[in-house]
Design a binder for these strands. Sequence first.
DNA 1: CTTGACAACGCAAACGTTTACGTATATAAT
DNA 2: ATTATATACGTAAACGTTTGCGTTGTCAAG
Lengths: 339, 339
Amino acid sequence: MPVTLQDIAQELNVSIATVSRALRGMPGVAESTRKLVLKAAQERGYYPNLTAQQLQRQRTNTIGFIIPTFGPRFSDPFFSELLAGIGNAAAEAEFDLLVSTVAPGKDELPGYQHLVAGRRVDGLLVVRTRRQDQRIAYLLAEEFPFVAFGRTDQELNFPYVDVDGEQGLFQVMTHLIEQGHQRIAFINAPEELMFAQYRLAGYRQALAAHGLPYDDDLVRLGGLAETDGYQAGWELFCLGEQMPTAVCTSNDLMALGVMRAARECGLQVGGDIAIAGFDDIPLAQMAHPPLTSVHQPIYQIGRLICEKLLCLLRGEELTEPQTLLLPELVVRESTDYRV
Amino acid sequence: MPVTLQDIAQELNVSIATVSRALRGMPGVAESTRKLVLKAAQERGYYPNLTAQQLQRQRTNTIGFIIPTFGPRFSDPFFSELLAGIGNAAAEAEFDLLVSTVAPGKDELPGYQHLVAGRRVDGLLVVRTRRQDQRIAYLLAEEFPFVAFGRTDQELNFPYVDVDGEQGLFQVMTHLIEQGHQRIAFINAPEELMFAQYRLAGYRQALAAHGLPYDDDLVRLGGLAETDGYQAGWELFCLGEQMPTAVCTSNDLMALGVMRAARECGLQVGGDIAIAGFDDIPLAQMAHPPLTSVHQPIYQIGRLICEKLLCLLRGEELTEPQTLLLPELVVRESTDYRV
DNA sequence: CTTGACAACGCAAACGTTTACGTATATAAT
DNA sequence: ATTATATACGTAAACGTTTGCGTTGTCAAG
């Protein structure tokens, strides 16, 4: 049986209150008795019951993070990095991290309600925001502390960190256009995802800026998985005359899928066809050929949203409630005609 | 302010006990009052305070999972899958999942003590077991419920799920040897990791079974990352006459690194050199050429260890405390001389 | 009319902390 | 001597539940 304050109090013939104060270094306890308490606690291996602390303090010292899953499984390397960033930042502040996965197809709001209404966590991290994001509307309505990774279409004011996807895609496109490409395809993520909006906007903006026409046939809606890119790639490469000379995608996984399709179509990536991704996951540089991509500092973003949330929970005013990071284009051989 | 049992009790002029019983469908409350309570709870949006429940019930309905990290970051796609399996199984049983990340270099035992001694979770999942695993020794000593993914060198009896790595490597080796390879290198994981032991054993066993000599130069100790494989690959390919004609590795990430090194050395993977991995992460089939690997059903393993733990927590006796899964070799082009 | 059974409910303790407040003792100031 | 102040501690309420037990009221059997 775990030892409680009660046990130590009885052993030393003092009150529970004294033991509690002694252990947490509060004033109002003689140095001599504090020593005794500390010694007894040490000997019996006392460790506070965190649940009891939580109930009393009305704080859980825990932050929540619900992982959205697309498709039957999620092998998105994205989340490993993000989770590492969040987890490490939380650990440094001595916060625990409660992670939920919502099975695909299931509504995710109940998961949020469970954590919020059950007062299971002090704050939440919301990732992969959508255009009309009911999670954010809910959390704002409940006045529950949270920080998001991504923005929304709703006119709501809330703290977030995001990477400027519009700017990111503009950079990729500019790079490709400078390489001489005129027909550039874009494989986007599901359009309810907010970042898909921005990236599409960047795509169009770049076309316009360089006087290129927007062609509906060159814009595809994918999922997020490699196979989605693979499939869209095949479709594009079967267009014959209308085939694009370059393809950019909304994430790296899909770009890798396009690369696979290209190979199967006998196209040499980097030579016959240029391919660029987004995210710059570790695999991008390991791909063959290495994939041009827009770098997102995912680990750092994880840390950032977590640290912002921790500030909120400490009751501090955020100096920068909304952070928009500038992405960085990393040019590799998949778009490099030297190959 | 969140509404409590107290609030509802006052509104209806009944006792807290009655409200509690009514809400949870316990006997001893008139159907008429139960209706009233349910209605009031619904209207005011009552949701039980989970922390209070936990303290009272002396269970947290939470399981813990501490992610070990190797290297500065972890982009191991392995854990995404595993986490998805664990998370979904937990969610189905209405359990929450507490995830800790231990920053590389830091001792991980305090993290376990925090969760165990603080009674923060009801049970733990231990992954990536080591030869002398202090975590397992600790949990056994505390008689704390847990299930491991992997075995240990210690003569301890505890519930686990593992994939037979010895058998797995034996299969890869047999395949390579049947392809005519005589000099086969093996890039292993850090030897304190238990699975590294088994895989090395399988490697040696296959050599012996086919009358091939064991050559120290052909066995390398890596980390777990792609760059480790890359580096070891270079070393192997610079051996000149002594160069292996095939390389197998302890995980896919390293195999991908070897592939990259091979390409840079002007070797055609699948033709000049055969390369095989272990784990069969989703990326294996997307690699170029697709990577031969030993399949581990990681998502399923996540589910399995979680479900085993849930059984333990329900107080059931495990029908199969220790599960050893047979791995399945997936032959792809990276070891296929047709290319 | 008494007795017993049973249903419906309230009381209060318990889970393990934290903390506002009260009290006793000792020391210092008047 | 009295009063004030500080120190060291104990008491008890509180956090929001759950649950064993006691109490009241109703109704049927004796």
